[in-house]
Amino acid sequence: MSYLVVAMIRLGVVGLAGIGVVAAALVVTAGVARRQRRFAVVDATWPLLFVLIAWASVVTGDGSTRSWLLAGLTTVWGGRLAWHLVGRLRGAGEDPRYAELLEDVPPERRFAVAVRKVFLTQGVVAWFVALPLMVAGTTDEPLGPIAALGTLVWLVGLLFEAIGDAQLKAFKADPTTRGTVMDRGLWAWTRHPNYFGDACVWWGLWLIAAEAWPGVLTVLSPVAMTYVLAFATGARLLERRMADRPGYPEYAERTSMFVPLPPKRP
């Protein structure tokens, strides 16, 4: 049997394992969402989907050093983000995104519609974005300088995301800042440091995978994640919700939307 055939079979096994763990996690999450009557719980599951895919790739792939590195980095990123989102969801109501999506749906059909438009969509997107993790699980080439660069980019992204979240949490907890717009720390350089950091994380993971063929072919995965974060359900959607808040137009005028840049002088 040729090397190409073996590689294709191995990639197929890893890909199916990824589908399996994503489906299982979303079925459990859908059950929790139905019991709580709140679909926002899927947000906490979102980063854990990548953690599950990464470790499924280690188990069903070659178990290479590259796949172990990717699984470890993904676990650190996904575990931190999931913990942060669980804390944000505690005591909160339905997310406005899902409330708006299901606003005109009869109550008896909301769960079915949410499964199709929220859970299934997120599962498909997560599997596609995680392609670098799965492809890396089928390669056994040693780590090199590009993997080191990817780890550095991942670290920059993780710090931007974690520090941005911590700064925003402290800002919201401060009663003296109530009614004002967060424009301090990283938020003075970009209006969405957490989303920018998330994008960097996935470009870093892709660089690690791209060092070994055919990981470079999965470049559309970080492109898709960046598009979702910057233009689809991430920054752009939040911008529309914040546009009417007092002080936000002025903040947006002087602060970069996504990529960190020095703030403009008023």
Results as ranks from 00 to 15, higher is better:
Met242Trp: 11
Pro222Leu: 08
Thr177Met: 10
Leu102Gln: 04
Ser57Met: 06
Phe50Glu: 02
Asp174Arg: 09
Gly78Ile: 13
Thr176Cys: 03
Arg236Glu: 13
Gly144His: 11
Gly87Ser: 09
Met182Leu: 13
Arg88Leu: 05
Thr29Gly: 04
Leu237Met: 12
Thr60Asn: 10
Val28Phe: 11
Ala166Tyr: 05
Val129Gln: 07
Asn194Met: 03
Ile146Trp: 11
Ala99Phe: 00
Pro47Gly: 05
Leu26Ser: 08
Leu131Arg: 09
Glu141Ala: 15
Val113Ile: 13
Thr65Ala: 15
Leu120Trp: 08
Glu108Phe: 01
Ala25Phe: 13
Ser2Gln: 06
Gly157Arg: 04
Ala17Tyr: 02
Leu81Thr: 06
Val115Gly: 05
Glu94Gly: 09
Arg110Lys: 14
Met182Arg: 05
Leu155His: 00
Phe111Pro: 00
Phe119Arg: 02
Trp77Glu: 03
Leu69Gly: 02
Leu143Trp: 09
Ala40Trp: 00
Trp189Asp: 00
Ile53Glu: 06
Leu85Asn: 01
Asp198His: 10
Leu261Val: 07
Ala23Val: 13
Ser64His: 12
Val228His: 08
Ala235His: 10
Gly31Asp: 03
Thr138His: 04
Phe160Leu: 12
Asp95Thr: 05
Gly31Met: 04
His192Lys: 05
Ala126Ser: 14
Val125Asp: 01
Ser2Met: 11
Ser57Tyr: 07
Ala114Cys: 08
Ser221Met: 00
Lys169Leu: 04
Val118Gly: 02
Leu49Val: 02
Gln36Ala: 13
Ala40Thr: 13
Asp165Arg: 09
Arg265Thr: 11
Val28Glu: 02
Trp68Tyr: 12
Trp83Cys: 02
Val42Ile: 14
Val135Ser: 04
Pro96Lys: 05
Leu120Gln: 06
Gly197Gln: 06
Trp202His: 14
Val5Ser: 11
Asp165Trp: 01
Gly91Phe: 09
Leu207Gln: 03
Ile53Asp: 02
Arg37Ile: 08
Leu48Ile: 14
Lys117His: 13
Val223Ala: 14
Leu149Met: 03
Trp154Phe: 12
Asp95Met: 07
Thr139Val: 11
Phe39Gln: 03
Ser64Pro: 05
Met182Phe: 09
Trp83Met: 08
Pro142Gly: 04
Asp140His: 12
Gly215Leu: 11
Trp213Ala: 14
Gly15Met: 12
Leu217Ser: 07
Thr75Gln: 10
Thr218Asn: 05
Ile19Tyr: 06
Glu100Ile: 00
Glu94Met: 07
Glu239Gly: 03
Val13His: 00
